[in-house]
């Protein structure tokens, strides 16, 4: 068995209690088996399908990364957002408000089985936040959305409704795009 190490990290804004874990434990296992946060899903265990994507809030801004191949040895001391941390919740952890990305996924009927949905929520949210800092021209939005979500595998939906939802959030949110003004503003 591998050596043990004590880790603690910030998950959805809350610092975890230090806990002793195998040093080769993956972040996904930590979330699921130690924190019971199972919204981040295991799809392939090799970083290919991105069902396990979480947002890392690092010094270079938010970035989606695969939790199934990211070890706690690196995650230790860092901050992450999982799918459970996007919506606002009351004291009983019931959802009280969801994010524009989540709302758009609902409105567009973006998912079917929803196994990959947490990964798409993470990737789309990270994209939206990246565009807040670094907006792109309106005419590039579709390409940017495709590039940002192309790593996420979905077997049910054919991607159309995820990508359209993400595009619409970006076009509807002031400040994410440059260039041509949106019709409703002009």
């Amino acid at each position: 068995m591998s050596a043990l190490m004590t880790v603690s990290m910030t998950i959805n804004g809350t610092e975890t209690e230090p806990v002793e874990v195998p040093e080769d434990l993956m972040l996904l296992e930590f979330l699921q088996e130690y924190l019971n946060l199972t919204g981040t899903r295991y799809g392939c265990g090799q970083g290919v399908c991105r069902a396990c994507a979480v947002i890392h809030d690092g010094p270079r801004g938010p970035r989606a990364l695969p939790a199934c191949i990211t070890g706690v040895a690196w995650a230790n001391g860092r901050a992450f957002r999982t799918v459970e941390g996007h919506a606002e919740r009351d004291d009983e952890v019931n959802v009280t408000a969801i994010t524009p990305v989540q709302q758009a996924f609902l409105d567009h009927f973006s998912f079917q089985c929803s196994f990959c949905t947490p990964g798409f929520v993470s990737a789309a949210q990270a994209l939206v936040e990246r565009l807040e800092v670094d907006p792109v021209p309106v005419e590039d939005v579709e390409d940017v959305v495709l590039a940002a979500l192309n790593e996420n595998i979905c077997r049910c939906t054919g991607y159309v409704r995820y990508l359209e939802a993400t595009r619409d959030v970006i076009l509807a949110t002031p400040g994410l795009t440059t260039g041509v003004e949106r019709a409703e503003e002009s």
Binding site: G39, R41, T82, V95, I98, F111, T117
Partner: peptide, 10 residues
């Protein structure tokens, strides 16, 4: 809503 917020559904 449970599906998009990462609830336990599977």
């Amino acid at each position: 809503i449970p599906k998009v917020t990462g609830e336990k559904v599977f």
